[in-house]
C-alpha cells in the first residue's frame, strides 16, 4: 500500500475533527464554577456553626452526597457529557468515579465486584496524592531539623 505510519499519522490528524475547545471550555467554566459556587454557599452555611476546617469537611461530604444521588439518578453523567472537566475536576467528579464502579460491578458480587472495583478509577488519585503528601511531609520534617 502507498502508505507509511508517519505519513498516516499526518493524514489522521488532518481528517480527525478537533474538539470544540471554546465550547468545551465554556461548559467546563460555568458548570465547574457553578459547583464551586454551590460549595461556597454550603461552606458559608456551615461556617455559621462550625470552624473553618470542619465547615470545609462538611462541605465536601455534602457535595459527595449530592454527587452520589445524582449519579444514581443518571443525571450527573448526562451533565458530564457536556461539562467535561467542569464535572470531572470538582470533588463531585471524584465521588462520581467512586460511585459509578460501585453500582456497575454489583453484578460481579459485593466483595469481588463492588468492593474490589470501587477504587478502579479513583485509586490512582488517592495513591499518588498520598505519596506526594508523604514526600512533602518528609521534606517538611527535614526542613524543621535544620
Amino acid at each position: 500500500m502507498k502508505l507509511n505510519p508517519k505519513q498516516y499519522d499526518q493524514m489522521v490528524k488532518k481528517a480527525s475533527p478537533p474538539s470544540p475547545v471554546l465550547k468545551d471550555c465554556l461548559w467546563a467554566f460555568f458548570v465547574g464554577g457553578g459547583i464551586c459556587l454551590m460549595g461556597e454557599a454550603l461552606r458559608n452555611f456551615y461556617l455559621m456553626w462550625y470552624d473553618k476546617e470542619l465547615a470545609g469537611t462538611l462541605t465536601s461530604i455534602t457535595l459527595v452526597f449530592l454527587s452520589a444521588v445524582t449519579t444514581m439518578l443518571g443525571w450527573y453523567q448526562k451533565l458530564a457529557a457536556h461539562a467535561g472537566a467542569g464535572t470531572l475536576v470538582p470533588i463531585t467528579g471524584f465521588a462520581n468515579s467512586v460511585v459509578s464502579p460501585a453500582i456497575e460491578f454489583k453484578a460481579e458480587g459485593w466483595v469481588t465486584g463492588v468492593g474490589s472495583k470501587i477504587f478502579n478509577i479513583a485509586g490512582p488519585v488517592i495513591a499518588f496524592g498520598t505519596l506526594a503528601s508523604w514526600v512533602w511531609g518528609l521534606l517538611y520534617w527535614a526542613m524543621g531539623k535544620f
Partner: peptide
C-alpha cells in the same frame, strides 16, 4: 462500555472522533 471503557454511570465527555 463496562468491559472496555468505564462504568455506565461514570461521567465523561466523548471526543469528536
Amino acid at each position: 462500555e463496562r468491559q472496555f471503557r468505564t462504568p455506565l454511570e461514570y461521567g465523561a465527555k466523548r471526543t469528536p472522533t
